[in-house]
């Protein structure tokens, strides 16, 4: 599949103005960052209360990037998620932004999917879709794994560039800017590849009213384990959940008083003698 995509792309992009790029965007449906969490009655999961579920913030950069490439080169943007029926809300949101197609990978066997299972589900689905480029978010808020994009690329045998804040097309290659410790790195990767998107890459658009109306009519395909040729037994989580806790409350702190210069002196003394932090 992947090699076909590459051949197709190099033919298309080599000569013509009509280079088309089909982009697959991985989108995760997550509780928004305002969410306050509680431990659920089972002691294993979280009770997210009335959390508002949204497109993972980093995935918005991925959708936006896909749309910009499509506007420049033509082609289609397909959004895909592994999740329950409620995740269609995020797919609709991406369709409203302008994505063409959406796929929901949903099956009871996917319910406890960890990053490794999620990546295998996405890889099986990606093999059935035309894609010259796969975009993911840098990380999914909540799970905080920062894995799925990289796992997917490795599974598909294509290059992976993570934490990307800039992208330029050069022939059949991408020139990517990525954040590294203490600086930026420019990386060149040939298509097809997986890119994980970081804040700074673009400014995600808001869906227009027209987009929202159009999204309602777009069809969302639902694929189950059997459709993807996946064995549910093989998707068991790699680690077994044993306990869920909230962080212990921090002991009450000391608010210093007095003249500011004296407070600062006391602070430094406390940091040195009591907290042993300096």
């Amino acid at each position: 599949m992947v090699t076909c995509a590459l051949a197709r792309l190099s033919v298309r992009m080599g000569f013509s103005e009509e280079a088309r790029m089909n982009v697959l965007v991985c989108v995760k449906h997550v509780p928004d960052t305002e969410t306050r969490v509680k431990v659920a009655a089972d002691g294993l999961h979280l009770d997210l209360g009335e959390a508002n579920w949204v497109v993972n913030p980093y995935d918005e950069y991925a959708v936006e990037q896909g749309l910009q490439l499509k506007e420049k080169l033509g082609g289609e943007v397909t959004v895909i998620t592994v999740g329950g029926d409620d995740a269609t809300k995020s797919l609709r949101q991406a369709l409203a932004m302008g994505a063409d197609k959406a796929v929901l990978c949903s099956d009871p066997a996917f319910e406890d999917a960890d990053p490794w299972s999620t990546a295998r589900i996405l890889a099986a689905a990606a093999a059935k879709l035309p894609c010259d480029l796969i975009l993911s978010g840098k990380h999914g808020v909540g799970g905080d794994n920062q894995q799925v994009g990289s796992l997917l690329g490795q599974l598909m045998g294509i290059p992976v560039v993570t934490v990307v804040t800039g992208m330029d097309l050069e022939g059949t290659s991408l020139m990517l800017k990525r954040e590294v410790e203490g600086g930026t790195e420019m990386v060149k990767a040939s298509l097809p590849c997986v890119i994980s998107c970081q804040k700074g890459l673009n400014e995600p658009r808001y869906p227009s009213l027209k987009g929202i109306m159009a999204a309602k009519k777009k069809e969302i395909a639902t694929w189950k384990a059997a459709d993807l040729g996946l064995d549910p037994a093989a998707l068991a989580p790699s680690f077994q959940l044993k306990k869920m806790e909230l962080p212990p409350p921090r002991p009450a702190g000391k608010i210093l008083s007095g003249e500011i210069p004296d407070q600062v002196k006391e602070l430094v003394k406390l940091l040195h003698d009591e907290a042993k932090a300096i």
């Binding site: 960052t33 969410t35 808020v141 068991a236 806790e245 909230l246 962080p247």
Partner: peptide
Amino acid sequence: IYAGKAFATLAPQ
């Protein structure tokens, strides 16, 4: 998880 709002304990298989 949730950037430190909660902590999960897990065991390897």
